[in-house]
Design a protein around this nucleic acid. Structure first.
Length: 300
DNA sequence: CCCGGATCCTGCTGGC
DNA sequence: TGCCAGCAGGATCCGG
């Protein structure tokens, strides 16, 4: 689920429902949730208890809540399967099967972190200054971000992203275009689904060598990616209500609007040619054989 | 420094 | 029916 549009939906939900709330207590389930927090589970809980959540910020697929303790934040990463659920005081739901952490808040509500595959995590890192002096991410003007996020590039919905510099950096790389799109240190927020959708829109094959791309092609795929992310966000953003921050992009955007991803054998919406599935770096890539011709070895 | 592959988990699906 | 290989939307770490 969680690529940029899904994480932004979470961030917006958190901004609307938990800011100003104080953390009364924290319950951690399992050994993996706190594995990326330096002081371990007990320290994580200790640093959160009594703190007030003051802002919800996102860069790429990373989301964090600023704390009233200056220079600290609660960092959330959803991994492959993470969800954030905001439970109202009277929700009455049983705990989700893969509940990994619960924060009890001072109005009786709770913030649940649910994660089947346990690649997600919580941490309370120190904040470090941003390299460009701009805000750490969307949702805050503070020019600081969690230490673990310092190497993560800005994303395509961030006004501080320098598109010209990004395009130049992509063409300087010696790799394949899809790898570059997935490289969070170049541009963040794009995962396997939206990489394929962006490449389809731009009519480029993901195996195209980045250093042989024409500038107009790089611009086209970046425009396409920005459009896809914005459209997915608009679709995903419609589906959460007051007590549930929805991470389930699958129900809305996923099934109806994808042109290539997961559609092996189905007709390309542009030309009708059956979409192909290829294996790439231990995962699947979907593309149109006609609109997105595979590059010849060594050539563009 | 840059690049690519292996790796951390759990659960579901599809083929035999 | 039952079993098991294969696969799933991510980031990090390590070797070349």
């Amino acid at each position: 689920m969680p690529e940029l549009p899904e994480v932004e939906t979470v961030r917006a939900g958190l901004a609307g429902h938990v800011l100003g709330r104080r953390v009364i207590d924290v319950h951690v389930h399992g050994t993996r949730v706190a594995r990326r927090h330096d002081g371990g589970e007990a320290d994580l809980v200790g640093r959160l208890r009594g703190r007030t959540l003051t802002a919800a910020v996102r860069r790429g697929k990373f989301c964090w809540l600023l704390l009233d303790e200056p220079g600290e934040a609660l960092l959330l990463h959803l991994g492959m399967s993470g969800q954030i659920l905001v439970r109202s005081a009277d929700h009455g739901e049983p705990a989700a099967p893969h509940l990994r952490a619960r924060l009890d808040l001072d109005d009786g509500s709770a913030l649940d972190f649910v994660d089947q595959r346990t690649f997600g995590y919580l941490a309370v890192p120190d904040l470090v200054p941003t390299a460009d002096g701009g805000p750490g991410g969307l949702g805050s003007d503070v020019p600081a971000l969690p230490a673990q996020v310092a190497h993560i590039a800005r994303d395509l919905l961030d006004p501080w992203l320098d598109r010209v510099a990004l395009a130049a950096a992509i063409r300087r790389r010696r790799t394949e275009l899809k790898r570059a799109l997935l490289d969070q240190t170049l541009v963040s927020g794009i995962g396997n689904i939206y990489a394929d959708e962006s490449l389809w829109r731009a009519r480029l094959h993901g195996a195209r060598p980045t250093d042989a791309l024409r500038p107009v092609e790089v611009a086209r795929v970046l425009d396409a990616a920005a459009e896809v992310l914005a459209a997915a966000l608009a679709a995903g953003g419609t589906s959460f209500d007051a007590m549930y921050v929805d991470v389930d992009g699958a129900s809305g955007w996923f099934e109806r609007e994808l042109a290539a991803y997961g559609r092996a054998g189905l007709p390309c919406p542009r030309c009708g040619t059956p979409i192909r599935r290829e294996s790439f770096a231990n995962r699947s890539s979907y593309s149109c054989p006609r609109c997105q011709p595979r590059p010849r070895r060594g050539a563009r």
